[in-house]
Nucleic acid binder design. Structure first.
Length: 325
DNA sequence: CTGCTAAA
DNA sequence: TTTAGCAGG
């Protein structure tokens, strides 16, 4: 059911870091989670746990992950998911309200058995605690890394920003960036080697499909939001859509049914996104404040972040990302 | 999550 | 060609 099948459909190529330039709209949830899991796996938990037991491995991950961008002259823009996380850190009261309203939404969706709504809500919030959401935003702000708040899926908002020309690539591990219409998507920005570039236009050309048809094919195979039809994989989906034209015709011809198919289709075709954002691609981090925040305020082991901060310092002053140079 | 194998 | 199950990171 997973959407790894999309990998077989997508046109993907390795691209050297040197060839990437400009702004990458990063699916922040995705990116943070990636670093969270590796940090937790390889680092002694005492290095990122406060006295009261709060774990802030995300701070370590951010400090270690950002140099990748800066050293290659790439400006990351972190796009956060909407829902419970789209809260500014002023009013605790409104934060509580928002969190509660989210819980309510999820609760209601569960009661109604609305699988799409459940999947949608869960995909946005999965695994990132409120503390992680908040401290990540605060550290990014100190480092002058732009943050954009998505109304719903960060992935969709990031794709929207690339479509509008405000960013050059979406940065995400998820293949559904393609379904949200991301023209160019970078994967494996967090790994050692070169990233992968997923090209929407090349993908559509290769299969002779429209984006709408690609979405329909993906729904047949199964996405994060729906089950898909058993027995249909990437090959069958593409040929069926090519033969019959669209999702409904395929389902009719096969006598199959997909629950909430229209909702999922709508979710990808016309996602909830906003034009209400702005950011400055020139980055001028306050490294002293960031160091203090991470080590003094949250008690992260200084040795663990030292190298990361050094790399940020060196790359920002040397590459001209700094607006003052 | 990615990769590989066996079985339908 | 698809799926399920298991390996390994």
């Amino acid at each position: 059911m997973g959407n790894a099948a999309l990998r077989d459909i997508a046109v993907i190529e390795d691209i050297p870091f040197e060839e990437i330039e400009g702004v990458v709209a990063v699916d922040a949830h995705n990116w943070l989670y990636r670093y969270l899991t590796t940090t937790v796996k390889w680092t002694d938990s005492g290095k990122y746990t406060t006295a009261d037991g709060t774990e802030v491995a995300n701070l370590l991950g951010i400090v270690q992950g950002l140099p990748k961008f800066f050293e290659h002259d790439i400006t990351p823009v972190m796009v956060f998911d909407g829902g419970p996380s789209d809260l500014k850190d002023d009013e605790i009261e409104s934060r509580r309200e928002q969190r509660r309203s989210y819980e309510d939404q999820l609760e209601t969706a569960r009661e109604e058995g609305d699988a799409v709504a459940i999947a949608q809500l869960e995909s946005r919030t999965q695994r990132l605690t409120p503390t992680i959401q908040e401290t990540s935003r605060e550290l990014l702000e100190l480092l002058d890394v732009p943050v954009v708040e998505a109304p719903a899926e960060g992935e969709a908002q990031a794709a929207h920003m690339v479509k509008r020309g405000d960013a050059d690539y979406v940065g995400s591990e998820d293949y559904d960036a393609l379904l949200f219409g991301s023209p160019l998507t970078l994967r494996q920005l967090t790994s050692k080697g070169d990233p992968e570039l997923m090209d929407l236009e090349a993908t559509l050309d290769h299969h002779g499909l429209t984006l709408e048809q690609l979405i329909d094919a993906a729904i047949l195979i199964g996405t994060d939001f729906n089950e898909g039809v058993s027995g249909i994989g990437p090959k069958t989906a593409i040929s069926a859509i090519t033969e019959h034209g669209d999702l409904w015709s395929v389902l009719e011809a096969r006598g199959d049914h997909i629950e909430y198919g229209d909702r999922v289709r709508q979710l990808f075709r016309d996602p909830d996104v906003t034009d209400e954002y702005e950011f400055d691609a020139a980055i001028d981090p306050d490294l002293e404040a960031a160091r203090t925040y991470v080590t003094d305020e949250w008690g992260v082991d200084a040795g663990e972040v030292e190298r990361g901060f050094e790399r940020i310092e060196e790359s920002v002053t040397q590459t001209g990302l700094d607006r003052w140079t």
